[in-house]
């Protein structure tokens, strides 16, 4: 009984994680400007990663694999947001202004301030 419950729960988590990842991907493509796209992409790093990895941890039970999955999840959760921070900072530093409206970026195409 417990086994079936754990199975169902982990499948639900995995599917939800997949959906999260997909939503993040679509957001990264569809959202109007760079800073909003960063926001969408970071969703896949955090929520998607947690859901998928917890789902897989439930599937593998108490093994070395679970420990490794936990480590991977932990490092993803640490490094993902850091990378996002670094990226946003790099963009801000070289003069890409955050836009309060919903207009598209007004960047000179492919020409990050020479």
């Amino acid at each position: 009984m417990i086994d079936i419950l754990i199975d169902v729960f982990s499948w639900v988590l995995l599917i939800l994680g997949g959906v999260c990842v997909l939503i993040g991907g679509i957001g990264g493509l569809r959202l109007p400007n760079f800073y909003t796209r960063i926001h969408a992409a970071s969703l896949t790093d955090t929520m998607g990663a947690i859901l998928i990895f917890v789902g897989m941890m439930l599937q593998s039970g108490l093994t070395l694999a679970t420990l490794k999955l936990f480590a991977i999840m932990l490092f993803l959760l640490l490094t993902g947001p850091t990378a996002t921070y670094a990226l946003a900072n790099a963009a801000l530093l070289s003069g890409l202004k955050p836009d309060t409206g919903s207009n598209h970026d007004e960047v000179e195409k492919e020409e990050p301030a020479e």
Binding site: T82, Y85, A86
Partner: peptide, 15 residues
């Protein structure tokens, strides 16, 4: 380097 960026600093030292 990135010494005044606190977040990469802390996470990097951890990693």
């Amino acid at each position: 380097g990135l010494r005044h960026h606190l977040i990469p600093q802390v996470v990097g030292r951890l990693v």
